[in-house]
Design a protein around this nucleic acid. Sequence first.
DNA 1: AGGTGCTGTGGGAGCGCTCCCATGTGTGAT
DNA 2: ATCACACATGGGAGCGCTCCCACAGCACCT
Lengths: 349, 349
Amino acid sequence: MVSRTIRTRSGGRGTGRPTLEEVAARAGVGRGTVSRVINGSPRVSDRTRAVVEAAVAELGYVPNRAARALAANRTDAIALVVPEPEDRFFAEPYFSDMVRGVGAALAETDMQLLLTLAGSDRERRRLGQYLAAHRVDGVLLVSVHADDSIPDMLEDLSIPAVISGRRSAAETLAAVDSDNFEGARSAVAHLAARGRRAIATITGRLDVYGAQCRLDGYRAALAAAGLPPDARLTAPADFTEEGGRRAMRELLGRCPELDAVFAASDVMAAGARQVLREAGRRIPDDVALVGFDDSAVARHMDPALTSVRQPIEEMGRTMAEVLLQEIEGRTGERPQIVLPTELVVRESS
Amino acid sequence: MVSRTIRTRSGGRGTGRPTLEEVAARAGVGRGTVSRVINGSPRVSDRTRAVVEAAVAELGYVPNRAARALAANRTDAIALVVPEPEDRFFAEPYFSDMVRGVGAALAETDMQLLLTLAGSDRERRRLGQYLAAHRVDGVLLVSVHADDSIPDMLEDLSIPAVISGRRSAAETLAAVDSDNFEGARSAVAHLAARGRRAIATITGRLDVYGAQCRLDGYRAALAAAGLPPDARLTAPADFTEEGGRRAMRELLGRCPELDAVFAASDVMAAGARQVLREAGRRIPDDVALVGFDDSAVARHMDPALTSVRQPIEEMGRTMAEVLLQEIEGRTGERPQIVLPTELVVRESS
DNA sequence: AGGTGCTGTGGGAGCGCTCCCATGTGTGAT
DNA sequence: ATCACACATGGGAGCGCTCCCACAGCACCT
C-alpha cells in the first residue's frame, strides 16, 4: 500500500504535495525536462531521465491533475453515458460487463471513467451542461435509440465519441457493434440443422438497427436452409418480457404448428417460454427456443436457454481503445468495428 | 436540451468557451465581482448581481472546473470507494440503492461522484495513488472490513471521509449505520411472538461489527421472550450463500427440533432455505425463516422471505450530506448516525 | 472639517502545469 | 578546422480561476 509522509510547506495554503518545480530542483534540471520525463517524451537522455525518475520517487511526486488539465486544455476523463434509468443499469449484466471491459482498457492509462446515467430529462439536462462545459475529453455512448439527441450534441460540440451498436447501416459516429446478422443467422441455421421446419421469430423494436439485422439474419438462414419465408412466423415485439409474451401468443394463435422460436433477446425468450408452458408446449421437445444476448436469464432459465453470446466485455474494451485513439489523433477516421458473436447451445434447442 | 452556439476565438488553442474575464467585460465589472456572483457571495449589490447574471446567460458561461480546482485547491469531486470486486458491486442491489441515495444528495451540488472499486490489490494500489494525489475532496467508504487499511490511509492524508457501517463500537470516522441490533431484535421478537421456541441464528462474519450487533440483538430478543440461550442454536457463517448452507446443515445436525432461523443476511437465508428444503422441512410450517437486508433475493424467494429492511438509499443520502459538511466545515465533529430498520413480514415466518 | 467603519468593487498574484522558443552541446560532413 | 544540423535542455508565458489586499464611496459620528 502506498504510505507516505505528509510534508507541509512553511506558509501559504499549500497542501504539502511536491510540485514539478520541486522535483526539478531536486534533480538539478529544469521544469520542462521533468515534464518531458513525466509525459514520456523521447526527447530526454537516459541519464537525465534516470535522475528525474529518482527525484520523483524520493519526493513521491504525483502530478496535479487540475493544473495539467488547465494548461493542456484537456481533462483526462471520459464519460460512459447510459441513457437508461438507474435500476436498469444496475439490473442488466450487459452494463456491468461493459464497464468491466472499459475499465480494463483504461487501467493502463490514467484516464478517469465517469459513469453518467441519462435516463430522466433532468439527468439529460445535466449531461448537456456537462458536455457543454467540456468536462470530459470523450464519450462512450451505450444503448442509444435511433432518435436520441445526444449524438448530435456531441457532434455540435465536436467531442470525440464512440457508440455501441450502430444506429443504422450508415452510422456516422465511430462505432463498435456485435455481428447481429451473423449471430441470428447462426442461431436459426442451428435450429434448421436440428430438423426444425416452422421456425418463428420474435423481433426487437425494428427502429433499433441491431434488431433489424437480427431479423435479416433470421431470413437469410431460412433461405439458406431452403425454408420458404412466411410472414405469419414473424412477430414484432420490443425487447421486454411482456412483449415476448404477447408476441408468442400471437404466433401460437397464427401458426399452432410452429416447432421453433428465435427470440431476438433472452428477456423476450423468457416471456415466450412462459406462454409456451401455459400452452402445454414442451421445450425443446415440441418447440425449440433460442434467445440472444446470453445473459444471466439464459443460464438460469429452465430449461437453460440456447442463446447468442455477444462479446460485451470486449466491446467495452474496444470502444475505449477507439475512443482513446480518437482523442489522441483526431484523425476523423471514425472506425466501425463489428465483433463476432458465438452461439451457446444449451437445453432449449 | 441545452443547445448553444460555439464561438471560436481567433487564435491560440482556445476552445471557444467564454471565460470569467469575458463575462466581466460584458457586464462592465471586474473579474472578482463575477467570481463572487458565480459563487453566491453575499457581498455583491443586487443591481450588479443582475447585470452579471445577464452577461453569464448571454454568453452561456460555464466555469472551467480545472481552473477553479487549481486556484481553490479543491476538486469538487468525491469518491465512493467500494472494496469489493466488480461483479459483487453490480450483483448486489445494496450498492445500486447506495449510489442512488448518494446521487440524490449530490444532485443539488455540482460535486462529481467517482465510483472506485478497490477489490483487487491492483485497484487498491491505484486508489492509494489517487488519494495521495488528492484528486477527490472526500471519500465515501462502503462495506469496509475491520482490518482494512483504507481508513488509516485517509486519516494520514487527512481526507474527509464517511464510512457506512461502523467498524466497531468505537468508530473514529464519521459513520452512517443502520440499527443492526434493533433490526435483529425485532426480527427475533417477531418469531417468538409467533410462538417459535427453538430459534436458531446464522451469523455473519463476526469481525464485522454489524454482524456482532445482529447477534447481540438476537440474544436480547431471546432473553426478553424468556427463551434460554443455547449455544447450539448459533452457527457462524460468512454472509455467503454457501456459508448459509453449511451453517444450516450444522444447525439441523445439532438441533433437529429447531422451529425458526434468523439469518443475518438474505443471501445466507437463501442458502439455509435450500438445505431446509432438502431436509424436507416446510417453510414456514415446520421452520420459520427470517433474513436481513430485504434485498431482491428476499422478494423473489419461494416462499417470499421475511426480512429486515435497511434504509440503504437514505444511508447513501445521509453519508453524502455528512461528507459535504465535513468538507465544508472541517469541524472534526465526526458524527455517528444510526438509521432505523424495519421488519418486512412475508410468507416465510 | 476630520475621523471611523462599513459595504462593494477592481485587479494583482499565484495555483501547477504544458507548450514552445531560445539556447547550449555534441555529432558528422565538408 | 568550420559549418550545419541534429538533439537535449532551461525557462518564459499563459491556461482560467480564487483569494485577498487595496481602495472608493457612503453613512454616521465626534
